[in-house]
């Protein structure tokens, strides 16, 4: 026989599951407690202190000779620091925006007063290969994987890559030292 289990409350016959405020409060406290307990378990997967310490790196730009490039590792990725010649800078500035797949003036990709230094993440925006320095039809970079050509501002000119090479967040701390990230 299907007994009704437990509504054996004698007396006033009050249903114990009636939504008294105190029960709602207890439930709310439980939910709050659960949320507070869950947060550290999720947050622990965020980058740890030692990873964040390597989130920025400083670099001495006097190490890059004019016309040359130095590649460093930043956040696990290659970063190009290129010391451009005056000719290369002029070339970069003389491109009309209509010719660019991803239009962006050169001035937006360098720091004022330090236009000779071009700092880019060395990862092709197509599928992530590292472009080679100085080759290609536009004097910038050439990606051997699928034939993307970048100019002396790191902008995509020819090939399958959709975007210009990424300019990371950076700032010059002094005339010779730049902090990337």
């Amino acid at each position: 026989m299907a007994d009704q289990v437990g509504t054996a409350a004698h007396g006033e016959g009050q249903d114990p599951t009636r939504r008294d405020f105190i029960h709602i409060a207890a439930g709310a406290a439980a939910a709050g407690g659960a949320a507070m307990a869950v947060w550290p378990l999720i947050n622990q997967m965020n980058p740890a202190g030692d990873t964040l310490a390597l989130a920025s790196t400083e670099f001495d730009v006097t190490k890059v000779a004019e016309g040359q490039q130095v590649t460093i590792k930043w956040r696990g990725k290659p970063v190009f620091i290129r010391h451009r010649t005056a000719a290369q800078i002029a070339e970069a500035r003389n491109v009309s925006m209509g010719d660019l797949k991803d239009p962006q003036p050169d001035s937006e990709r360098v720091k004022q007063g330090k236009e000779q230094f071009l700092i880019l993440v060395g990862s092709c925006t197509h599928l992530g290969c590292v472009p080679t320095f100085g080759t290609g039809d536009y004097g910038g970079w050439f990606c051997p994987c699928h034939g993307s050509h970048y100019d002396t501002s790191g902008r995509i000119r020819k090939g399958p890559a959709p975007l210009n090479l990424e300019v990371p967040e950076y700032a010059f701390l002094t005339d010779t030292s730049v902090k990337i990230g």
């Binding site: 004698h10 114990p16 029960h23 409060a25 709050g32 407690g33």
Partner: peptide
């Protein structure tokens, strides 16, 4: 927080059991 939570839950518990011998 736990002390407060325990207090609230205890009252809730006593409420629920009020009519059960």
């Amino acid at each position: 927080y736990l002390a407060l939570f325990a207090g609230i839950t205890y009252v809730s518990y006593r409420r629920i059991w009020r009519n059960v011998a």
